[in-house]
């Protein structure tokens, strides 16, 4: 964990501050990337329904209450900067994960 942190600076206030500056300044640009790359949840849900792909954790045998903790855990699982890291930098990871679905 400590070795990872030396590489990621996840908890380093200065590094986090630099990332926050980029995130806030380039927010529109970041959201444009999201818009470009991701299908809508509605379209994806429709595809899953059509093909019979499970949509929720309960459909694959996981208890529903595991989801918030699972999402939070993704921040520490490996070294990549993923959505949970972005939310962590913004101080909203816990709040958003609590009522995720």
């Amino acid at each position: 964990m400590i070795r990872l942190e030396e590489k990621e600076h996840k908890y380093d206030p200065q590094a986090a501050e630099v990332r926050r500056a980029v995130i806030c300044d380039a927010w529109d640009e970041l959201m444009a990337i999201v818009e470009e790359e991701l299908p809508s949840a509605a379209a994806l849900t429709e595809l899953f329904d059509r093909l019979g792909i499970p949509k929720s954790v309960t459909e694959i045998g996981q208890p529903a209450e595991i989801l918030p903790m699972t999402l939070k855990a993704t921040k520490d699982i490996r070294d990549k900067y993923v959505l949970s890291r972005l939310l962590w930098d913004l101080g909203i990871l816990d709040a958003l994960c609590e009522n995720a679905e």
Partner: peptide
């Protein structure tokens, strides 16, 4: 697949916020 749909839903929620 479940992870993808979950992540996409989270992304939709953050699109609505201004940090």
């Amino acid at each position: 697949a479940v992870g993808t749909l979950t992540a996409v839903k989270l992304y939709e929620r953050i699109k609505k916020i201004t940090p």
